[in-house]
């Protein structure tokens, strides 16, 4: 049961990364791929009406974690206190910039909200990347299952670590590049004209940058968590994750090379799903690794709610999920195809 819930939670978080990740990516590249006000509206329209639907996966993930792993929520959220509030403020600003930016036809107004959109999206990509780095590296978890952490300490990933050290910074960098590449791939599919051409160019350059970075962070991970590889190879799901990453990379590359936009987006989505999935399989069953003493680490068995609560959740969760899958079919049929600023215009909408 606990392992199943671990998979479900990882799945929900991954859906969130894949869906909202392209919005972060589009946000980071907004100024680069769109130069005129009309082009900027095109980018916003490509994200437009769906950002709440994407963001809600984060809400669903948080709620489900609260129900099944309440002690993980308590420990991690209190420990990451300031970082989480930074994320929250960025999410608020990002959402508002999307909603109100297009509503007034004025250069100063739109320019300001475009700026907010770019900054918030970039910070979100970096912060989520740093969070992933923290999950892999571990946090200074004490024996009572709590921790508190500074933004940074001495930048070494051992002992009393901070949120940022050289390892988590490099993961954050990789996340920013990969999400930007993902966003560019998405924009290539959804837009036309100059935005499309620039996005296609950025997608290729950014993915080409991401590949060596991925190699670097893999090597770094094996140094920082030397115990992890030996542990991971015993987990069949880890091998499955690697297989997925390989298939995703091939799909992505062939999509980019042959300019099949849909194939490239599928590849890039699979890759962004596969990488965290591989990571999740590698650390299982530990959900919070302690950098102070391995016996302080929390596993899915330590943090779970009582079995009865897990069983109840297992009854309603599939129903909720089936419903949301149905809405997803509806949503994707509604918004298939290239956006047109005329039809999908945000201002007003």
């Amino acid at each position: 049961m606990n392992a199943t819930w671990y998979s479900i939670l990882s799945f929900m978080l991954i859906v969130y990364v894949v869906l909202d990740g392209r919005n972060f990516g589009a946000g980071m590249l907004h100024w680069l791929v769109a130069r005129t006000p009309a082009e900027r509206r095109q980018v916003i329209a490509a994200i437009g009406p769906l950002w709440t639907w994407h963001e809600v996966w984060l809400v669903g993930f948080g709620g489900t974690m609260f129900a099944v792993f309440p002690k993980l929520l308590a420990s991690a959220f209190a420990g990451y206190y300031l970082a989480l509030f930074l994320i929250l403020w960025c999410l608020i600003l990002r959402g508002i910039s999307l909603e109100v930016g297009g509503q007034i036809n004025d250069r100063m107004w739109q320019g300001f909200w475009d700026f907010v959109f770019v900054v918030a999206s970039t910070l979100l990509a970096v912060l989520f990347g740093a969070a992933a780095g923290n999950m892999a590296r571990g946090v200074p978890l004490a024996s009572d299952g709590t921790f508190s952490m500074a933004f940074f300490t001495d930048f070494t990933p051992r002992g009393y670590v901070g949120l940022l050290d050289w390892y988590s910074v490099s993961i954050a960098l990789f996340a920013a590049v990969a999400l930007a590449a993902h966003g560019a791939t998405y924009l290539t599919l959804k837009t036309e004209g100059a935005v499309h051409d620039r996005s296609a160019g950025y997608a290729r350059v950014l993915w080409a940058t991401a590949a060596p970075l991925l190699l670097v962070i893999s090597v770094e991970s094996s140094v920082v968590r030397s115990d992890l590889l030996g542990h991971a190879i015993k987990n069949p799901y880890w091998w499955l994750g690697l297989l997925l990453d390989g298939a995703a990379a091939i799909t992505l590359i062939s999509g980019l090379v042959t300019r099949r936009e849909m194939r490239a987006l599928i590849g890039s989505s699979l890759l962004l799903a596969g990488l965290p999935a591989t990571g999740a399989a590698a650390i299982f069953p530990v959900v919070l690794h302690s950098t102070l003493a391995p016996e302080n680490s929390l596993t899915v068995y330590d943090v779970a709610a009582a079995p009865n609560s897990l069983t109840y959740a297992a009854i309603w969760w599939p129903i909720g999920f089936a419903l949301s899958a149905a809405y997803c079919v509806f949503v994707s049929r509604q918004y298939a195809g290239k956006v047109s600023v005329k039809r999908d215009n945000q201002g007003f909408y």
Partner: peptide, 15 residues
């Protein structure tokens, strides 16, 4: 209380 109140907060998200 997460084992209890988490249920409805999660259901709120899912449903």
């Amino acid at each position: 209380a997460g084992g209890v109140i988490g249920q409805t907060l999660a259901m709120e998200g899912m449903f």
